[in-house]
Structures are given as structure tokens and as C-alpha cells.
Design a protein around this nucleic acid. Structure first.
Length: 421
RNA sequence: GGAGAGUUGGCAGAGUGGUCGAUCGCGCAUCCUUGGAAAGGAUGUAUACGGGCAACCGUAUCGAGGGUUCGAAUCCCUCACUCUCCGCCA
């Protein structure tokens, strides 16, 4: 959510932002609606002022005739207020619905572009893995080692269903435990948040209203989170934080549910795209300063890069183009891991910052050094998603003898050096 | 799922139709007192929006939304949440 005052004063900037993000919002319409909102509100306020003033007179008026006259007069004012409020109601509805669609302004450094194909690579780490034998993809590898069961997965769940079994399940636990330790050493507080949440939280993060098709809804009108960012951000909603708490670092861990509406034909094989997965997520709140946001954004992304480097998986980092940014995001980096079976880098992590876009919706504030109440800034970045990480892990570390070498830092968590038949 | 009690400012807690943005206390800030501190005393201390150079003025806000009334923290309705008891349950 942007401040309407900011939108009015920087209309050109917001229009450019909408263009860059490929948003179809009609900002001129918003200004027209806001004009009528303002004039109706000030009209109602004037009438209320009159009403309040006379209402003070009524109880101290002793003359019953005069008293009755004042009451009669106020009945007319009341009717006028009622009429104006009826006019205001549809205006407010349109105003709110438009305001919820206004995108945050992307940073100057965000490149133009329509989709993830226009993201700009700015870092490559490690060499693309070469094999002296015929390499397999993760589906074959994991099935060979009885680590995954897609047939029974779709029997029970349906399309995109899967079971992780045996070493598949053990390796997942090893990754969670290692990542949990790794990121806690960076100063994060671990959080197990709710994964069923009220609608307001998805509006808070900016997943609603624009991504409604991609979230699961329950018969009680609650929603399943697609990332723990949603419920971890909601954790401190409506609070006035103490500045001394900053920067607040939470490491959320939760199941993540995504309908993947609109991508039915994509990535139908394997563990790249599933409806249900698990993710450790870095979530931060810091003071309302662009410099702080930028600093922590780089830091969050670097944390995940370091984690990937510790596993020894080749990756690249891209800066996302305008068309690939979420509504509230100012800037985003994606980390993509090398997937030999596809001869492509595939996204494993997203690091974003939002300025006060989310905190305004969540009403997360703090008192600054002057005692002024301000909205905090928020950021988040994937720590590690499973099972998607298994795709690169299995494919990059497969050996000629069909075994899979386990990266060194995972071995003590996993209990073995390699996966063999 | 059933029954009951609640939700008021940073915290605690009064207030059952007008003089209530809201008693008192704690906390916090400033000042007095002191060699300095404690104790004690005085004063001040919500947020948003609109107007004004400003002092300040207006409007709204007592869980949320609606209603009754000239006027609602207070009465009525709906919803959410918290607590207690019963039922069910991993």
C-alpha cells in the first residue's frame, strides 16, 4: 500500500512504476475517485461539526420550545449527513479497491522487462557440472534410489503429488536441520508459524488481491500460505515496535501451498513445481530507511548464496526485471541453481525488499528517535526450499557408479557420505 | 459443538445515554527539591485525516461492522478474538 498523499504528489513516478511492473491500474481514475472522496469527507465533517456544536446546546437548553426547535433542526442535519454518507460509500469501495492495486515503486536499478526471461544475470558461481558418463535427471536418480514415489503421490494427492521416502525423506531432514543451524548462526530467531491464516495477512504481504488464483482457500474463508513470509509478517501486525529491537530477523519454517493456476503445462515432471512443499524463509523488519533496506537486502541474499556455496552447487544470481516483480516489491534478486538435466539455471531463492508497502498494510510501526511513529521496513529472502533443492543436489552430485555424493556439511546431519544402492 | 464472562490509551483499570478523547494509578518526559541520587512535589504525556506560517481549529477513533437517538464507550444486532465450565479430540 502506498500513501495516497505520496501518490498524488508523485503521480508521474507511480505511473512509471505501474508501466514498469506491467500493472493495468488506472491511476487517473484513482485521482478522480480520490477527489470526490476528499470533497465528500470534508462536507460530512462540516455537517458533523455543526451537529456536535448544537448537540452541546441541547442538554443545557431549558426552554422546551427552543430545545424542540434545535432537535428538529438536527434531524435535518442528520438526514443530510446520512445522504452524503450514502454517496461516500461506493466512492470508498472503489477507492479501496484501486488503492490495493497500486504497485510499489521499483528501484532505479531494476531493469525493464516483461518476464523472468528479461532478468539480468550479474553473478555466476561455480562451473556448470560436466559428466564423463550419461547423466540422469533427478526423477530417474531418485526413483533408482527409492527416494521418491510419484505414482502413489498422484494416487493419493492427484496432479503434482509426491511422496519422499527413505533417503529422500532423510535427506530432507538433513537439509532442514543444517539450514536451521546455518541461518540461526546469522542471528535469526526460528519461528514455526501458522500455515492457515486469515485473508488480511495475504493482503498484508501483497499476495492478495492480485494473486488470488494461486492461493488455496478453506471453507471457512481462511487461506493456506504459499510462504511463511505471510504468517511471520502477520506476527507483529498492529504493533508499535521498540526501535531497539531492530533489525528483527525471523527464520520461518512452514509447509507452503501453491495452486500453480496458469502453469498446468509447466514442469510437469519431477519436483521442480509442486503444490505442497517446505521452506525456510528469512524475514526481516528494520527501521524506515532506504539505505538500511538496501543493506539488509544484500545481506539476506548473500546469506542464501553462502548457504548454496557451502553445498557446492553451481548457481547464478539475477536481478529481476520490472515485469517479474511482485506488486509490493522494490527490488528482487533470484538465485538460480544449475540443473544439468535441463541444462538450465532454475530459481531456488528470491530476496526482496518492500520499504513500508507491507508494514503499512499490516500496521507495523515504531517510534523513531524524535518520538514520531513511523512504518517499519520489511524484507524477505528464501533460506532454502525443499524438495526443489533436491533437484540440483541429486543431479549435480551423481557419480558414474550411480551413487550420489552428499556435500560435506550435510554429512553429519544425513549420517552418510553418499547414497548408494 | 453448548453455556457464561470479557475486549477501553504504553501498561493496569474506572466509566450504563449529553458537561467523556475518556477518572485514578503505574510508566515516560520536563521542572522544583539535592553536593549528587532516592524519596517527595509540580506540569505534561494517544493516533489518523483535513485546514492553518504558526499558536491552534475541525473530524474520526473505547475489538470490527451495522442500527436506535438531536446526541452512543454506554442501548440493540452481526462478526472476530480472549478467558472459564461442559462436550469432542491428536
Amino acid at each position: 500500500m502506498l500513501d495516497i498523499k505520496f501518490i498524488r504528489e508523485n503521480l508521474d513516478v507511480v505511473k512509471m512504476a505501474a508501466t514498469k511492473k506491467k500493472s493495468s491500474i488506472d491511476l487517473d481514475r484513482l485521482i478522480v475517485v480520490d477527489d470526490s472522496r476528499r470533497s465528500l469527507v470534508s462536507q460530512i465533517e462540516e455537517e458533523r461539526a455543526k451537529q456536535n456544536k448544537v448537540s452541546e446546546q441541547i442538554p443545557i437548553t431549558t426552554d422546551p420550545v427552543e430545545k424542540q426547535r434545535l432537535i428538529g433542526e438536527m434531524q435535518i442535519v442528520k438526514a443530510a449527513i446520512q445522504q452524503d454518507e450514502d454517496k461516500l460509500k461506493p466512492v470508498m469501495e472503489e477507492w479501496q479497491s484501486l488503492m490495493l492495486q497500486v504497485p510499489n515503486v521499483p528501484d532505479m536499478s531494476v531493469p525493464d522487462g516483461d518476464s523472468d526471461e528479461d532478468n539480468e544475470e550479474f553473478k555466476i558461481w561455480g562451473d556448470q557440472t560436466k559428466f564423463s558418463f550419461t547423466a540422469k535427471d533427478h526423477v530417474d536418480l531418485m526413483q533408482d534410489h527409492q527416494m521418491v514415489d510419484f505414482e502413489r503421490g498422484s494416487k493419493v494427492h492427484g496432479f503434482r503429488g509426491y511422496y519422499l521416502i527413505g533417503d529422500g525423506a532423510r535427506l530432507s531432514w538433513a537439509i532442514w536441520n543444517y539450514a536451521n543451524d546455518f541461518f540461526q548462526q546469522k542471528g535469526f530467531t526460528p519461528v514455526l508459524p501458522p500455515s492457515i491464516v486469515r485473508k488480511a495477512n495475504l493482503y498484508g504481504t501483497g499476495h492478495l488481491p492480485n494473486e488470488a488464483d494461486d492461493v488455496y482457500r478453506t471453507q471457512d474463508e481462511d487461506y493456506l500460505i504459499g510462504t511463511s513470509e505471510v504468517s511471520v509478517m502477520g506476527y507483529r501486525s498492529d504493533e508499535i515496535l521498540d526501535k531497539s529491537e531492530f533489525p528483527i530477523k525471523y527464520l520461518g519454517f512452514s509447509p507452503c501451498y501453491r495452486r500453480e493456476a496458469g502453469s498446468h503445462g509447466k514442469d510437469t515432471r519431477g519436483l521442480i513445481r509442486v503444490h505442497e512443499f517446505y521452506k525456510l524463509e528469512q524475514v526481516m523488519l528494520c527501521e524506515a530507511s532506504h539505505e538500511e533496506s538496501v543493506k539488509w537486502h544484500e545481506w539476506l541474499n548473500r546469506n542464501t548464496e553462502e548457504f548454496i556455496e557451502s553445498l557446492g552447487i553451481p548457481y547464478r544470481t539475477v536481478v529481476n526485471c520490472g515485469g517479474d516483480l511482485g506488486q509490493g516489491q522494490v527490488k528482487k534478486y533470484d538465485i538460480e541453481l544449475w540443473v544439468p538435466g535441463e541444462q538450465k539455471y532454475r530459481e531456488i531463492s528470491s530476496a526482496s525488499y518492500f520499504h513500508d508497502f507491507q508494514t503499512r498494510r499490516f500496521n507495523i510501526r515504531y517510534r523513531d528517535e524524535d518520538g514520531k511513529i513511523r512504518y517499519a521496513h520489511s524484507l524477505n529472502c528464501t533460506a532454502i526450499p525443499t524438495p526443489r533443492i533436491l533437484v540440483s543436489l541429486m543431479e549435480n552430485f551423481q557419480q558414474a557408479d550411480e551413487s550420489i555424493v552428499i556435500p560435506e556439511p550435510l554429512r553429519s546431519y544425513f549420517g552418510k557420505d553418499k547414497i548408494e544402492k
